[in-house]
Design a protein around this nucleic acid. Structure first.
Lengths: 323, 323
DNA sequence: CCGTCCCATGTGAGCGCTAACATCGAACCG
DNA sequence: CGGTTCGATGTTAGCGCTCACATGGGACGG
């Protein structure tokens, strides 16, 4: 920086002012400094800047380390929203979900001096781990955890989505709806299950036992085969599109017609779902909106606002698998 | 840090030594310092550390800002590989691919003092943009760009994958193979096209004109309808799984049987592809390996080694759509 | 015409850390 | 038993930047 100052014939402080868009620099001086910067290929040292300003202009994101559609979509959306607010993103992905991975990741971000932290915590244990960290910066959790203390929270309203899906199936004349549930440690899975149950209850329909599964199409296939053996129900609401794809596969194999014999609804609206056989009725989550909200809550908290909780409404997308 | 030193009754330098695992600290002193750190909840300031060491222990990743399967899988793999090497990752996603987005992103990372940069550059224009930045740290490009100067490069051998797919179709008795090509600005699309052509040439089979498309299932559907109208070929090799799903959809609609009337092969092996109708023969790319290689090349370059180029072999996964 | 204000710029200090060197005492060796 | 070595610790300086304050000169008002 002093090199730039010398070349431009000003003090280092004036260079700093140019870099930070301080108003009281003569235009002529400013352009002289900018020229010197370009000539020397100077790049400011953000570490030194962070040291004195105590702000890095970056936010830390902790997210599950799988290539699952939901988390990765959220990550991309978060990054874009953060950059729209002039911030960069540091990422830590998790192989496990407990404190042993979450805590060090958060600690690192705090040591790094991030302005705030977003934790994509789809599982209960991740949120539990979060309780043991004392963070001097705002923390926003992307998750519908019911018991977050002092942290902001943003989530898609999984329960509403599941309710809409179930109601749609009932409204189209199906007598009952079987639910293929995601892993119980995932909030999303629990909430979808709850929404499904609520819709059945509200309609006065008996609630069949939910069928527990993972998130994969292979799991859906296994459940589908079992259903074929034990008797295919009127309608199935799968906790995500992958499970639904597995179900469709098993039904197709067995000659069970969708939607004639059984209607199938998924959750996520993955890219390929519109072209499944048959095209899948599903629930679309607004990941972009989710990321934008999370960053906005974080930035507001940075500005002194109380961290809030926000719920985003998902959207039912009706296709042939459940018209 | 001085608070910790005072509480432990040592100098700040001893605290620093404990933090950096310096050998010559008495175990008793070390534990006293660690206790003081725990008591005070002290976290070291990495900005200050970076200022003097001139290393941040982080690497910058520039990657396309879409939720496409390939780039996001690569991103996750990169992050995990980086963390296995003790580094954290900063991310910048790109909405466009030209210099106007790439250059500022790289400049930011350099200002931030990253130890190295990985650019996931699936498109030609991104690599071109890279030429205009002078980086004082190692840069690794994840891309099969033919003309990278001074940068390391890591890629999956798209051409070999495409060749394997095409050869498989020919070996199963198909007379020719039509290619639904990805966008021409993408290296992957070009390389897959080249591999397809090479396989046909090698077999002495006439090369039908490739059918240009995007990457989406909707595009595949459109092309599929056109093929149905104009005459369905023996076999189709689609540039990715989404396109293949669209093709399957169009064929199914038209009563064209897969694989009896036409065999279909995709590329990527996305999670749902094994449960498509029919299950999709495709080419699996090793994204984890890709990420691990990229980080290894970067770390080697950090250690003074010449940046190298590495090519990863993909794997043909045979399923029912092209047995 | 002088005091006041404000705009443009400069000066000095210090953010929290590590590298380099200084110091001190104990162990070791001939 | 003195010199040497080395392990354990302390002292000092400075990384590159911004903040707070100082300075100086023109515009403006009475």
């Amino acid at each position: 920086m002093s090199d730039v100052a010398a070349l431009a014939g000003v003090s280092h402080q004036t260079v700093s002012r140019v870099l930070n868009d301080h108003p009281s620099v003569r235009p002529e001086t400013r352009s002289r400094v900018l020229e010197a910067i370009a000539t020397l290929g100077y790049r400011r040292n953000l570490a030194a800047r962070a040291l004195v300003t105590r702000r890095t202009g970056s936010i830390g994101v902790v997210t599950p380390g799988s290539a699952l559609f939901g988390p990765t979509s959220t990550l991309v959306a978060l990054e874009q929203a953060a950059r729209d607010s002039g911030r960069y993103v540091s990422v830590a992905t998790l192989r496990s979900f407990g404190p042993d991975e979450v805590v060090p990741a958060v600690e690192h971000f705090l040591a790094q001096g991030v302005d705030g932290i977003v934790v994509v915590a789809p599982r209960t244990d991740t949120v539990a781990a979060l309780g043991s960290v004392q963070a001097p910066v705002p923390v926003v959790v992307v998750s519908s955890a019911p018991d977050l203390v002092g942290a902001g929270a943003v989530a898609v309203d999984q329960e509403a989505g599941a309710r809409a899906a179930t109601e749609h199936l009932l409204a189209s004349g199906r007598r009952t709806v079987v639910h293929v549930a995601g892993p119980d440690e995932w909030f999303d899975a629990r909430d979808r299950l709850r929404g499904w149950r609520a819709a059945l209850d509200a309609a006065g329909v008996p609630v069949p036992p939910p069928l527990p599964a993972g998130w994969s199409a292979a799991d859906g296939d296994v459940i589908g085969r079992r259903l074929v053996e034990e008797g295919v129900p009127d309608a199935v609401f799968a906790a995500n599109d992958q499970l639904a794809l597995g179900l469709l596969h098993a039904f197709r194999r067995a000659g069970v017609r969708v939607p004639d014999d059984v209607a199938v609804v998924g959750f996520d609206d993955e890219p390929g779902s519109a072209f499944a056989a048959p095209p899948l009725t599903t629930v679309r989550q607004g990941f972009e909106e989710l990321g934008a909200h999370a960053v906005r809550v974080l930035v507001d908290a940075l500005g002194g606002a109380e961290p809030t909780r926000e719920l985003i409404a998902p959207e039912l997308v009706v296709r042939e698998s459940a018209p």
